[in-house]
Design a protein around this nucleic acid. Structure first.
Lengths: 337, 337
DNA sequence: CTGTTAGCGCTTTCAG
DNA sequence: CTGAAAGCGCTAACAG
């Protein structure tokens, strides 16, 4: 491996001068600077991060941690997009992305990158065990949470505007004449789903539509099928269903088709997230789009601020806006008659 | 940050003794060893990888590179699974995973981790530009290719048994009585798809079924919709369609439904990959399962062998077996009549 | 068995 | 403007 010393020898200067030249310091003559750069070029030399980091006490790497059990990458395209957003922004800032999927049974077995100080900070995405977060706090690891499933003080968080998104979805359905609106969801213990329920309730209230517990079905992420099936057996069936995420909605489609009903003629659907699959479904799913890459890139920008100490490290909560994407899974209630 | 020196001071020994104790060398007395371990524990000390790596000329990190443009993570659950497989195996071996999505227009702007020697080796997954691979070769970066889209000498490759998988799929259809079998695919310039076409042809040949160019439609990954639509307009329509990947098949479903035909009663489908979506589709898609995590973990094991120099670095080609998963998208041709 | 010494590749004083 | 020297945290060779 070619080092700064080699370049120094070739250029007939000292290693420190080479270092200065490479880092474009102002205490090198333009001449030597040029000479050194040229030699570096010629020998295809790039300073190793090893030494620099050791000296600077920095790693130029950021850890990104997901919960392994939730199959975050393959199971949910949502998080993959967030990851792509994170990657892009880190690359832009010339940081490495160190990926780790945290096992539930990891207990106090921290990931290598944390134990061995190989990252300057971490981004925790989605469901993450409390104890793990606490552990990191104790070690003073700078961090940012993205779409956390449970709220936390004193840590910066990048959040989806869940409540308003749900509110918009329901308002949209109501304006299409729907009054009995089913709500199918993942576990309501999770902050984000819970907030979506609040948005649902607020919209109903605004239009003086009574809230009916029977229309609320929450549980497993993939239980959209069962939930929908159940809602279809209700005496007073819903005319529309709001799924707190697209995956749920797609599973819901399946139940509707099995019941030989049509979407949206017999029942309307609206989702949340706008994963790629949403537009591929038949009919294409009307849904609340979440800007997933943004969630990631904003997280990176915030974390880097903290890491570089460029800002007073106040924990912030940033709400990333959402948007309603109209497709073909909703029609007006009047048509149903 | 607490260092080996601090521990040494507290334990009243020299730093080297601490190092030895921590690394469980046999030239430390059991007593001091125990004492040091205990102090380390107490102070929650873990040696920093910085120094160790600088000394050992190793990084204990492996780079994993995808092509950014193909939206490898969010756009294709296939690669996400491969990534999960890679992550798991690396974690098991106590290596960091440094993720990078390679931009097409990156030209000779290599990723930071490569330029600055922050990884011991890399795994390249899927489509990767030739020039990039060549660049890495010139720099003697140990590497392994996973499901490469174009073949390469002298580099270890972990491959899907494309040909045999396609062969099995077609054989299965033929045994169900199908004779006119459509073939829809991504770009045939890609090795893997091309091999699947070879498998298709071989199966036809075995059963003396003529090969008909008209039934072959290749192009964009998401063009399954158009391809299927086109096949349905043929005078002598296929009774079954083999899609060289599940995504294509799912898009094909859409075209079939639009034509008010039913699967499998009117036309059978068989896919390739077995992504999660395959079983979610209606009807659930019969497909050739590829063991995606395996592709990843095998790649890691091979790369680590090379990196650790534990083996004669002969480039190998490993074929990961596939398996036919029967679901509900195929029925016998006789039924059609 | 233990400690001293040197050095991995780089940066940063500080003296010249 | 340049270079010598010291040191980041750790390991290894060698002497004691």
């Amino acid at each position: 491996m070619i080092t700064i010393k080699d370049i120094a020898r070739i250029a007939n200067v000292s290693p420190s001068t080479v270092s200065k030249a490479l880092n474009a310091r102002n205490d090198v003559s333009a001449d030597t600077q040029r000479k050194i750069m040229q030699i570096a070029q010629e020998y295809n030399f790039m300073p190793s991060a090893y030494g620099r980091n050791l000296k600077n006490k920095t790693t130029e790497s950021i850890g990104v941690i997901f919960c392994r059990e939730s199959k975050p990458l393959s199971g949910n395209p949502f998080y993959s997009r967030v990851l792509e957003g994170i990657e892009g922004e880190l690359a832009l800032n010339n940081y490495n992305l160190v990926l780790h999927l945290l096992a539930n049974n990891a207990n106090n077995n921290l990931p290598k990158m944390i134990k061995e100080h190989q990252v300057d900070g971490v981004i925790l995405v989605g469901t993450i065990q409390q104890e793990f977060i606490v552990e990191l706090e104790q070690r003073d690891i700078p961090m940012v949470l993205v779409d956390p499933k449970t709220s936390r003080e004193n840590i910066s968080q990048i959040l989806i505007d869940n409540e308003y998104g749900a509110f918009m979805a329901i308002k949209y359905l109501i304006e299409y004449g729907h009054k009995r609106i089913g709500f199918i969801s993942g576990d309501l213990k999770r902050e984000s789903f819970h907030q979506r329920l609040i948005g649902y309730k607020k919209a109903l209230k605004l239009y003086n539509i009574p809230y009916d517990e029977d229309l609320i079905r929450a549980g497993d992420l993939e239980a959209g099928y069962e939930h929908t099936k159940h809602l279809l057996t209700l005496e007073s069936k819903p005319t529309a269903i709001f799924a707190t995420n697209d995956i749920n909605a797609i599973y819901g489609y399946k139940a509707v088709k099995e019941a030989h009903l049509k979407i949206p003629e017999d029942i309307s659907f609206i989702g949340f997230d706008d994963i790629d699959l949403a537009k591929m479904a038949s009919p294409p799913l009307t849904t609340i789009r979440v800007y997933k890459e943004e969630l990631g890139s904003i997280a990176v920008r915030n974390l880097l601020n903290i890491v570089k100490g460029e800002e007073d490290n106040k924990a912030v909560k940033i709400l990333v806006p959402i948007r309603l994407i109209e497709r073909d899974s909703v029609c007006s209630y009047e048509k149903l008659a």
